[in-house]
Each structure stands twice: as structure tokens, then as C-alpha cells.
């Protein structure tokens, strides 16, 4: 699913509210049976750990850690043991095709590779929904296409739901549902299946 719209249309804010990063000023948010808008900060952390994955435009990897450490970090907070953590992180990196780069630090990787690491990080604890804020915003069109191919494949083969914020119509072409937003309001729904 893509949220498409010009900048300032409120699509990123919508995504952040969805991820519990900012509280809604009014109304309530329900994800499955969870009432996000009523959760405390700590409950939100636990909820994110269990059910959500995040992908950002600027990747947001921790620069002092290697690729595998970045991916495994998400499992650390869930209290997973170290050997299992590394095993799962390796699996996630294998899915995004970066197994050979797992000991590299983010600044030793290209933009596309960094974004793939962050996708692996979002995948590693098998969340139901992955929220992606301009995942291709910093990438050239060729790499963007690669990333979107990968997301589409994960969506189709692993039944992984992606909510993608973008202003690039090329990106939204990969998505099954497209929501057009403008000035904080939903303009139209589109089913591309």
C-alpha cells in the first residue's frame, strides 16, 4: 500500500501516528485490536517491537555498528539470546541479499545497500506491518527499482504488509493499493490489483 501525495500533504505524519511515534491530537488509532492512541510510551515500545518494522528515507542505521549488528539490535531489546539473534539477523540479511556485506559498517555500504540493511532490520522480528517513509527517497531510479522489486517480492511471497510513503508515482506503481493525500486529507483510494 502506498501513500502518495505532494510534500506537506501529511503522509509522513500519518505514518508516524500509525507507528505510535507521535500521538494523534484527536481521534483514535486501531491496528488490529490494539488501540495505539491510548497506549503509554512503554506500551508503544513493546507494541513496535512485536508488530511493526520501520524503514526510513535516511536509513537510520547506527554508524558505529556493522550491518549484522544493526539488524541484530532490534532483537536485543526483545530479549533474544545472542546466538539466535545473530542467526536470525543472518537470515534477514540473506533475504535482502547482503550476506557478504554483514561485517561492513554503514559508511562502507552504498545507499541501496544501507537501505537493504534497514529493510533486513525491519524484517528480523517478523512484524505484521512494515512502515516505510520514503524508502527510495535518497536512491537513484535504478536502485529504487531494485528496492521496490524486493519489497514487492516480500509482500507477495511472505505476505508482509508494507505501508509506503512516497511522492514518486514510479514507486506507487509497485503497490496494490494507493491512497492519494493532499493537505492532510485522503483524496482518493485506488486498487491496482
Amino acid at each position: 500500500m502506498a501513500l502518495l501525495g505532494p510534500s506537506g500533504s501529511g503522509k509522513s505524519t500519518f505514518l508516524n501516528v500509525l507507528g505510535g511515534l507521535v500521538p494523534p491530537t484527536s481521534g483514535e488509532i486501531l491496528i488490529r485490536d490494539f488501540r495505539i492512541s491510548d497506549m503509554t510510551e512503554n506500551e508503544l515500545c513493546l507494541f513496535r517491537r512485536e508488530h511493526l518494522g520501520f524503514i526510513f528515507q535516511s536509513y537510520n542505521l547506527i554508524s558505529t555498528m556493522t550491518a549484522i549488528e544493526n539488524v541484530a539490535l532490534a532483537l536485543t531489546f526483545a530479549g533474544v539470546k545472542k546466538d539466535i539473534r545473530l542467526k536470525k539477523a543472518k537470515e534477514a540479511l540473506e533475504i535482502v541479499g547482503l550476506l557478504d556485506r554483514m561485517e561492513h559498517k554503514p559508511n562502507e555500504l552504498s545507499g541501496g545497500q544501507q537501505q537493504r540493511v534497514s529493510i533486513a532490520r525491519a524484517l528480523v522480528n517478523h512484524p505484521e506491518i512494515i512502515l516505510a517513509d520514503e524508502p527510495t527517497g535518497n536512491l537513484d531510479s535504478k536502485t529504487s527499482a531494485d528496492i521496490m522489486e524486493m519489497i514487492t517480492k516480500l509482500n507477495r511471497e511472505d505476505n508482509q504488509t508494507f505501508v509506503i510513503v512516497t511522492h514518486d508515482p514510479e514507486v506507487s506503481k509497485y503497490c496494490t493499493k494507493v491512497i492519494h493525500m493532499c493537505d492532510g486529507l485522503i483524496e482518493s483510494w485506488e486498487d491496482q490489483r
Partner: peptide, 16 residues
């Protein structure tokens, strides 16, 4: 700060 933010987004609790 940024690192702390990332950790919180990917599931670190306040006590973590």
C-alpha cells in the same frame, strides 16, 4: 540522540 531514537523506534523500551 539519534541512536537513542533509532533504538526506541525499533523496539527499545524506556527501561532498556
Amino acid at each position: 540522540t539519534k541512536e537513542i531514537g533509532i533504538m526506541k523506534v525499533i523496539g527499545a523500551s524506556i527501561s532498556d
